[in-house]
Amino acid sequence: MNHIALLLENQPGALSRVIGLFSQRGYNIDSLSVAPTQDETLSRLTMTIGDEGADINQILKQLYKLVDVVMVQNLSEADSLTLELAIIKLKKSKTEVESLINPFSLEKEILDDKDNYTVFKVLGNTEVIEELLSSLKEEKFLEVTRSGTLGMTKGDESLATNDQTTISYK
């Protein structure tokens, strides 16, 4: 697993250039999350890319080559943390759900239990979320939505935009 953080110009078509690059070059994206940042001209993406057949350095270089990509960072190579949110619905009572999810070291919260369907959220490590989901595989009713992994480096390292380039002409 490689987690890549990326700052992207908030321009029409910019996201499709990033996604297009992956299909065009035969790379697979396992998960992707996108949202605006505190600077409204920029979006921030976190992408998860499997190890199979992917030359991660080549991917980073190709991404950085896109004019709309302002900055790329391989979180997996840095001292970083990652986090994922999942919302899950089961046809079970609140107490049944609580006992099912208790063993997993995730942050959990029951959000709703209308008509004996319980909706809850879990927050934590992607691998642990996947363990939880595989333990629920046999459930007759299961609905899941996940945020995809989000990530950030620790300490003073950051995905900044300090290298603004101005090109002046005579």
């Binding site: 302002v70 935009t161 380039t165």
Partner: peptide, 10 residues
């Protein structure tokens, strides 16, 4: 324009 700004165009 006489100048142009491109963020991080290496």
């Amino acid at each position: 324009p006489s100048d142009l700004y491109l963020r991080s165009f290496a």
